[in-house]
């Protein structure tokens, strides 16, 4: 009879390090880096000008997060950070992001990009204002930096073929044993975030969050605060809002089950995507990072293979493996 440890090790390796499509992780890299770079360049909450606004805040608001203490060590510590330092960090981060997007020195540039984004965001959050859309993006960039996300859709792969005479591969069929774990890790991270939100509704909401009035309240508050007429209008329908509360509560509390039974993702993933789009449309809460990172649930390689086969008139039944 085999011992528990070897069996557990094999099961662990089979779960996290089974060969998976390289295209999925490469597509995720392009989407995630593309969004994050776009936010750093264009969004007034994250761009270079925002650093000036943050640096001008009263120093009494500044309480550096542990991650800022850690990442600021090369710059003399969290209390030695100047506007010039942070602007330099942002410029370097954006350059690294551009390289990561096109896939040049992909792993190194992605690692710099992930650390830079975490540093910048952590510094902004250290001024008494922590929000929730950004964290999963930092973790996702870190995971992608450690995986083979530059093996396809990248300048690296083009250079490798051109100069090292690496054989051309069918992009949609290429696999790697290390292409699976970053995807699964980000998926599990979503499950844990939802579970935390579910738990908070039980504890902070004192078990009464789903009474209908809570969600009516939030629709009314955010509708009035951010100018969403649709939310204000919806806030008058108690029963619809009550049922929506139950649906959200159920979704957040049980999302992790879809990680154990992947076929359930056919229900949970469209529901979750609709939820985040709905939250943005109604409450104007900009969870863009979550919405784009939902791409982690899409088997892009299989999807495109199916489309290719359909164009040829021979779709493969049951080809989607929801990981």
């Amino acid at each position: 009879m085999q011992g528990f440890a070897p069996r557990a090790r094999r099961a662990w390796a089979k779960y996290w390090f089974r060969p998976a499509a390289l295209f999925d992780i490469a597509a995720l890299r392009v989407l995630a880096v593309g969004l994050q770079l776009g936010l750093l360049l264009l969004d007034p909450r994250y761009n270079l000008a925002s650093l000036k606004v943050i640096a001008a805040l009263p120093s009494s608001l500044y309480w550096p997060l542990p991650v800022v203490h850690l990442l600021s060590l090369p710059f003399g510590g969290a209390y030695a950070l100047s506007l010039g330092t942070m602007q330099s960090v942002q410029v370097v981060t954006m350059c690294a992001g551009f390289l990561a997007l096109i896939g040049l020195f992909t792993n190194a540039s992605l690692l710099v990009f992930a650390l830079g984004c975490t540093f910048l965001q952590g510094w902004a959050c250290s001024f008494d204002d922590i929000h929730h859309p950004e964290a999963v993006m930092m973790v996702a960039l870190g995971a992608l930096a450690l995986g083979p996300s530059g093996k396809l859709l990248s300048v690296d792969s083009w250079l490798s073929r051109k100069f090292r005479k690496a054989p051309a591969v069918d992009m949609l069929s290429a696999t790697s044993p290390e292409a699976r774990w970053p995807v699964l890790l980000i998926q599990w991270f979503f499950a844990l975030m939802y579970l935390s939100a579910f738990y908070a509704k039980l504890v902070v909401g004192e078990g009464q969050w789903f009474n209908g009035y809570s969600l009516q309240f939030y629709l009314a508050v955010d509708g009035l605060r951010w100018g969403s007429d649709l939310a204000v209008w919806l806030a008058q329908f108690h029963w619809i809002v009550f049922l929506s509360s139950l649906a959200v509560f159920f979704f957040q509390g049980t999302f992790f089950v879809s990680m154990l039974y992947p076929r359930l993702k056919w229900f949970y993933v469209p529901f979750g995507m609709s939820l985040h789009v709905g939250i943005y449309v109604l409450l104007r809460a900009p969870f863009f990072q979550w919405a784009v990172l939902y791409a982690v649930f899409v088997p892009w390689g299989e999807l495109l293979k199916q489309l290719r086969l359909m164009r040829r008139g021979t779709p493969v039944a049951g080809a989607f493996d929801a990981t």
């Binding site: 991650v67 952590g122 964290a135 939802y194 908070a200 509704k201 809570s214």
Partner: peptide, 11 residues
């Protein structure tokens, strides 16, 4: 951060 708890809209 980036490991958080998620009490958004939870009260």
């Amino acid at each position: 951060f980036p490991f958080l708890w998620y009490p958004m809209y939870a009260a």
